[in-house]
Write a protein that binds this DNA or RNA. Structure first.
Length: 341
DNA sequence: CACGCGATGCTTAATGCCGC
DNA sequence: GCGGCATTAAGCATCGCGTG
């Protein structure tokens, strides 16, 4: 333990923790890197821990806001121990790595490096890439600390992206206060992503009957008939013509079943309807039944939208991996594009 | 009660698509 | 290429909920 840690603990009236910090060899560098898990380990008493967390957070924020001053004075060494932490604290927010993973990201990186500025179009793209990464790592509702960390990491990496708000990153993320919601490019993008996700899910959950109130194959069949057909389909792969006919008749039932109580995993779906994958054309037949007006477009645009669907499925935990190359013949997970393959 | 935070809805601007 | 239309995103305001 060094002088910095002693001073801080005394300052924060948490000197009873001195022994623990000394025992755990917490020095200035590791002090600044302490995360929630480490704090929990070091400070088992909740009251003390909360006080510590509060002061620790303030210290980090103060360090960041003074960073620019420090940089302008070329006092790099001072900066190293106080402001680099914002990036080190959240190693997943290595901005260059995050952007370097895509062609557009690399283009933005070179623009920022060369011109020290970006256009509004590039800024939007940058926000999309960062938020996509954020959602991938932390879900749709990342805590505000995480969003602050991302914004801080961004302006640390590219000081030209600083704004004239007090924090220098307020344009990218500003936590909510005084009855005002959080804002900033990152927050706004997150909000839009959430809005779109929910609008995709909600109508299906709320109005499954209304959607297909028209006469459709299985609206003409009794529930008993449907159950019988589903049971038959579980046990029989042949004759193919009969499988296709029964799959067609049960398409609406299947769609409702998949969507009821949230949604099903792919393995659940395939357990209930194994013919979806082992009989080519069944999924596209379902889609044709459910959305006849869009089936053609779906087929034509499949290569472009497959990747989006897979990424969404991965994020929702429906599948574990996303193949690099989604070809029209792909049917490893659900057989969705089997019309093509 | 004040505050932080997220949800929602609205307006406006930007962008994409399509037919000519 | 251009104009009209539809869709999407950004920005803002308001509301509700949980917490201290």
């Amino acid at each position: 333990m060094d002088e910095f840690v002693k001073t801080k603990l005394n300052e924060w009236q948490l000197d009873t923790l001195l022994d623990t910090f000394k025992e755990q060899e917490v020095d200035e560098e590791s002090f600044l890197l302490l995360d929630d898990a480490a704090m929990q380990h070091l400070i088992p008493k909740i009251g003390q821990r909360l006080k510590f967390q509060k002061h620790h957070k303030e210290l980090l924020q103060a360090a960041c806001s003074t960073k620019d001053q420090c940089l302008s004075e070329k006092n790099v060494e001072t900066v190293a121990s106080t402001t680099l932490l914002t990036v080190v604290l959240h190693p997943e927010f290595a901005i260059r790595q995050m952007l370097g993973g895509s062609l557009e990201g690399r283009s933005i990186l070179s623009t920022l490096d060369e011109k020290q500025s970006i256009t509004s179009k590039e800024r939007k793209l940058l926000v999309r890439l960062l938020v996509s990464h954020l959602i991938e790592k932390h879900g749709e509702m990342p805590p505000s600390d995480t969003k602050i960390a991302l914004a801080m990491a961004l302006i640390y990496e590219f000081p030209c992206l600083k704004d004239d708000t007090g924090s220098s990153y307020g344009a990218w993320y500003t936590p909510g206060r005084k009855h005002r919601p959080a804002t900033g490019f990152l927050e706004e993008r997150l909000r839009n992503v959430r809005k779109r996700m929910r609008s995709l899910i909600r109508p299906r959950q709320q109005e499954p009957q209304e959607d297909h109130a028209v006469l459709t194959p299985d609206s003409l069949s009794s529930p008993q008939n449907i159950r019988e057909m589903v049971a038959w389909l579980k046990a029989n792969k042949y004759p193919v013509s009969e499988v296709e006919a029964k799959m067609k008749e049960t398409s609406i039932h299947r769609s409702k079943w998949i969507r009821c109580n949230g949604s099903k995993t792919i393995s659940e779906i395939l357990r209930e309807f194994p013919r979806l994958t082992d009989n080519p054309g069944m999924i596209s037949q379902d889609f044709q039944q459910l959305h006849p007006e869009a089936a053609g477009q779906m087929f034509e645009k499949w290569p472009a939208i497959a990747d989006k669907i897979l990424k969404y499925a991965q994020r929702e935990g429906k599948i574990n991996v996303v193949p690099d190359d989604v070809t029209p013949g792909w049917n490893q997970y659900s057989g969705v594009p089997d019309k093509c393959g």
